[in-house]
């Protein structure tokens, strides 16, 4: 699934009601300067992609506290994607390097707490890479859809610790 013209065929549960097929919910944590602008460009260019992503804008990927990601899963996200400026292009000089380094350390923690790393995507998308953004959203949606709903946290909440 990697073309910018993929037809969005899914509808949010809120609109279609409970019988609609399951669709993953994906939270995107992106930086204001590169990826947010890249996503804007996808809009200005009238590209089309899967509607499963909800973007949260941050100044820089360096701002991302790993707990944001855990919180997103806790609150029902089935997948999380993190995207910022390419290495060397950070608006703040080095924030994305910090994010990358943190990511490496964070990876093993995520695995340890039992989150399938396929639910978590990290990428660099510049302000001009609208197509890359579209492909990323489509690919991540597809992949997370294959994995099915992420229910571990909700189960814990339900059953109690």
């Amino acid at each position: 699934m990697s073309n910018a013209k993929v037809k969005a065929e899914i509808v949010s549960k809120e609109v279609e009601g409970k019988d609609a097929p399951w669709e993953p919910r994906i939270t995107a944590l992106v930086c204001n300067w590169c990826t947010y602008a890249g996503a804007d460009l996808a809009g200005t260019s009238r590209m089309e992609y899967r509607p499963n992503v909800r973007i949260i804008k941050l100044p820089c990927t360096g701002r991302i506290d790993p707990l944001f990601i855990i919180k997103a899963f806790e609150k029902g996200a089935d997948g999380v994607l993190v995207s910022g400026c390419h290495p060397g292009d950070c608006h703040y000089n080095a924030g994305n390097y910090h994010a990358r380094r943190r990511w490496i350390g964070f990876n093993s923690l995520m695995e340890f707490i039992g989150i399938d790393m396929k639910r978590l995507h990290f990428s660099w998308i510049s302000a001009s890479e609208a197509i890359k953004w579209v492909d990323l959203v489509n690919d991540v949606t597809e992949e997370v859809k294959k994995l099915g709903p992420f229910g571990e946290y909700q189960d814990i909440n339900k059953d109690g610790l």
Partner: peptide
């Protein structure tokens, strides 16, 4: 707009 109406043509 850029991140919704323009990218979902439904």
């Amino acid at each position: 707009r850029e991140q919704c109406s323009w990218v979902h043509h439904d």
